[in-house]
Design a protein around this nucleic acid. Structure first.
Length: 169
DNA sequence: TCAGTGATTAGG
DNA sequence: CTAATCACTGAG
């Protein structure tokens, strides 16, 4: 796997990584040992304890703990009683940030993405630079993308709610 | 438009 | 222990 994105790639600021992940490949090895590749088509950035839409704005808890680590790990959580959300932690240590994966070429919607991939709580904290079952690769394609406001965060207040931190092809 | 669904969290 | 909240989806 010559093109695996390394730790250094993910330790950059989330506002750089989130749009850059568009057109990159999300690679997953299933229980059957079969490797599948998907093109990332939609992402959202959640940036620091100041960002009222970011879970870390509520403080460091057992759930948000991994966001305080160095970039490159997975932040996976369960919401609305039925959906797992897949996030990539970015940035340096003690700067809680993450990118929500909202869409792939094969399906659209963060809950559908995790259902398709078989992502659950066992992926919490997984390291993308060393994991044998999930990682990312460069496709060599330079994305042409659009931006918009983030979905489902009406509670975040006017300022943070209106940040154009949603990116899609 | 809106119900379903259960982990997580703060508070007593 | 209780209760509120929730980075969503699918049916209608």
């Amino acid at each position: 796997m010559p093109d695996r994105l390394d730790k250094q790639y993910f330790t950059r600021d989330v506002l750089e990584v989130a749009p850059d992940l568009l057109s990159k490949l999300l690679v997953i090895r299933g229980n059957d040992n079969q490797v599948r590749r998907f093109v990332i088509t939609e992402t959202e950035a959640y940036r620091g304890s100041e960002d009222l839409a970011c879970h870390a704005s509520k403080g460091r808890t057992k759930r948000t703990e991994v966001m305080y680590h160095e970039g490159g790990r997975l932040y996976v959580y369960f919401v609305y009683g039925m959906h797992w959300m897949l996030n990539i932690v970015t940035g340096k240590e003690n700067d809680p940030q993450a990118v929500l994966i909202r869409g792939l070429d094969a399906c659209s919607g963060p809950g559908r993405v995790t259902r398709l991939l078989g992502i659950d709580r066992s992926f919490y904290g997984e390291d993308l630079s060393t994991s044998g079952r999930i990682w990312m690769e460069d496709s060599g394609i330079k994305p042409v993308y659009l931006t918009g406001t983030r979905i489902g965060i009406s509670y975040a207040g006017e300022y943070w709610k209106n940040k154009p931190w949603r990116y899609y092809l």
